[in-house]
Every structure is written in C-alpha cells, then in structure tokens.
Amino acid sequence: MKALAARPQLVIVSLIVLAVGAAVMWTATTIPVGPGVAAVGPRSFPFGVGLLLIACGLLLLLEASRAPWDCEATDPAAPGLDLVPLGILACGMIVNVLLIKSAGFILASTLMFAFTARAFGARRLWLSVLIGFALALATYYGFARMLDLRIGGGFIEDLF
C-alpha cells in the first residue's frame, strides 16, 4: 500500500519539472540568432532540452496521479522529515556565504563547521570550533597552497 498522503508532493515535483521546461523554452526564444542563418543555430538545442523537460514533467505528472512512485518521501516506513538539523545546516551555509568575503575563509568556515557539527548532534561547541579552526587553518595552508588555490585574505589570513 503506497502512502497517498505523499501524492501532492510528487505532483508539485512534476509541476516544477514542467515549469523549468517551459522556462527553458521561453528563455530560448530570447537567444539572439546571428545574421548568418545556419540550419541549426544556438537556439535548437535549448529548444530540444526544453521539450524534453516538458515531456518528462507531463509523464511524471501522469505517474504521480496514477501510481505514485516509490521514494523516501512516499515510503510510509521512512521516518518523517527531520527539519531541525536541516535548519541548523542551512544557517551554517548562510553564515559562510555572508562572512567569507569580509571575515575570510578561515573564520567563516570555522563557524560553518561548528554549525554542521551541531546539526549532526555534536554537543561540545568549543570542541567543534577548535577542530573546525584547526582543519580550516590546515586546509588553507596545506591543500589550498598545494593546489595553488587563492582563497583570499581575512582576519586570520592577514595575520601571517
């Protein structure tokens, strides 16, 4: 017996695919075609991809309304969506995005590390901040230098 409660979710997923397909078609019409009109221009492939997405969206919609497919979201045995860790993780990522330019990679990513660790159930904040800081420092001076990545300056980066 499939969980019919999850059907609206699958319908939404199908509609999103359909909408992306339509958006691709519409955007493709705005691609300028150069003066030398070739048989196949820069629009042809985008149109094809858009059509494919629309077709997939319609078929998914059909499947969702007839026989919802099996996945984690429709599996009655699967535990419900645990939103608390997801929220904490998202906060960590937002902090990283906001701070990485101004405060620098080491500080921003240490914070993200601490948020992530908390999301996965770490209890001692000081320990995860410490580990995160050590790892970020090691990554900045080891991995990044080896690969010659330029992660930019920041509070801690500029000290050395």
Binding site: S109, F113, T116, S128, L135, T139, R150, I151
Partner: peptide, 24 residues
C-alpha cells in the same frame, strides 16, 4: 565522529569551489 566528518566535508566543498574563483 559523524559531526566532524560532515563538517569537514562541507569545509572541503567550500575550499574546492570558492578556492578556484573566489566568487561568493
């Protein structure tokens, strides 16, 4: 421990992408 493992994975993910382009 899982918390530090995934913290580390996200850290490396940041380095691997932001490190190439330095673009937010």
């Amino acid at each position: 421990p899982t918390p530090y493992l995934y913290g580390g994975i996200l850290l490396f993910a940041t380095v691997g992408t932001y490190g190439i382009s330095r673009s937010v």
